[in-house]
Computed example of a mutant assay.
Amino acid sequence: MQSALLQEGHLIDLQTLRVFMAVGDEASFVGAARKLGLSATTVTRTVKTLEADLGVSLFNRTTRSVHLTTEGAEFLVRCRSAIFDLDDAVAVAKGAGTEPQGVLSITAPVIFGRLHVLPVVTNLLKIWPKLTIRLFLTDRVVHLVEEGIDLAIRIAPSQNSALKMKKIGEVQKVFVASDAYIERCGEPETFKDLATHSLIDVDEYATGHSEWRLGGKNNPSIRISPRLSVNSVDAALSAAIDGLGIASALSYQTEDPVKKGYLRRILPNTATSILPVVILFPAKGRQSVNLRIFVSAMKERFMREPLLKKQCLRNCLQDLT
């Protein structure tokens, strides 16, 4: 397979995508050239041609640094996802796939793991009797190689270029409160109105001083002095259910209490951060049949049950072939 379909009626060579990914990973044209065994001139020309074909700038360049643009960062996520699928297909075609067996170690955020990873894990264990899975649910960042973990599910863009990535979905920041609190204190009409309300903040160190932001560093933010600061999302949502105030969390974390009527979405039409849900793993893990069947099962789950119901998950998992 020589080309990948990226735009209607337009083909881009897969090697071009691999060059772009290398520049994104290395944050350097020279570093990417060294990694790929190409000349810096070839790498620079390849990226310029890709940008011209796409009609967007993928990198911000200065004399000292190379950084992905917003469009470049999103394109990198999708390219990695597509290349993973292609490499996986090649491995299977060559006979790399065997029956899953042995131990697969997985780490995931606590609530996400309980709601979305554990059901996949239990189903895989029913299907594959020789497979054993160790599932570590923690909200701290686990160092995969140092701690002997095969893969991690994280809700944020990867900052570690040494790890391979597969995007499986997206989640969104939301604000929630109980009906009792809204009846007592009223409902905010704008994002800035939140600063006048009783707020519940999830803060790793529970310092009591923070800010809430709609998106990245260039998006609107408000300084807050929360009535309650906790280091657990579960605790924050419990306090919100008890009527203490308004909590900020991610869409999947609030889905169950909202569905049951314990909480209500606040400012539902306000545009907030959309974060990728990704599977990270060391490069050597790509050939693991255990990893491949887990990634496939997670992908199938979110094709059936998108994390963002109003988003088309097919865009998140789009296959570029």
Score class of each variant (00 low, 15 high):
Leu17Asp: 02
Met21Trp: 09
Ala22Val: 05
Val23Pro: 00
Ser28Cys: 08
Ala32Pro: 01
Arg34Tyr: 06
Ser39Asn: 03
Ala40His: 09
Val43Gly: 01
Thr44Pro: 00
Thr44Glu: 00
Thr46Gln: 02
Glu51Asp: 02
Gly55Cys: 13
Ser57Arg: 15
Phe59Gln: 04
Thr62Tyr: 15
His67Asp: 07
Val77Ser: 11
Ile83Thr: 02
Phe84Val: 03
Val92Thr: 10
Ala93Glu: 10
Gly97Asn: 11
Glu99Ile: 10
Ile106Val: 13
Ile106Lys: 09
Ala108Lys: 06
Val110Asp: 02
Leu115Ala: 15
Val120Met: 09
Val121Phe: 08
Ile127Asn: 08
Trp128Thr: 02
Pro129Ser: 15
Thr132Ala: 15
Thr132Phe: 13
Thr138Gln: 07
Thr138Phe: 06
Asp139Gly: 09
Val141Ala: 13
Val145Gln: 12
Ile149Thr: 06
Ser158Cys: 09
Asn160Trp: 08
Asn160Pro: 00
Leu163Asp: 01
Glu170Pro: 01
Glu170Leu: 10
Glu170Ile: 05
Glu170Asp: 11
Gln172Ser: 13
Gln172Asp: 07
Ala180Glu: 14
Tyr181Pro: 01
Glu189Lys: 14
Asp193His: 08
His197Met: 08
Leu199Asn: 03
Leu199Glu: 01
Asp203Phe: 03
Ala206Asn: 09
Ser210Pro: 07
Gly216Thr: 05
Asn218Phe: 15
Pro220His: 14
Arg223Gly: 13
Ser225Pro: 01
Leu228Ile: 13
Ala235Gln: 14
Ala236Ile: 04
Ser248Val: 11
Gln253Trp: 01
Leu263Tyr: 06
Arg264Lys: 15
Pro268Arg: 01
Leu275Cys: 02
Val278Glu: 03
Arg286Val: 02
Gln287Leu: 11
Gln287Thr: 09
Val289Thr: 15
Ala297Lys: 09
Arg301Tyr: 12
Phe302Asn: 04
Met303Asp: 06
Met303Glu: 14
Arg304Trp: 04
Thr321Leu: 09
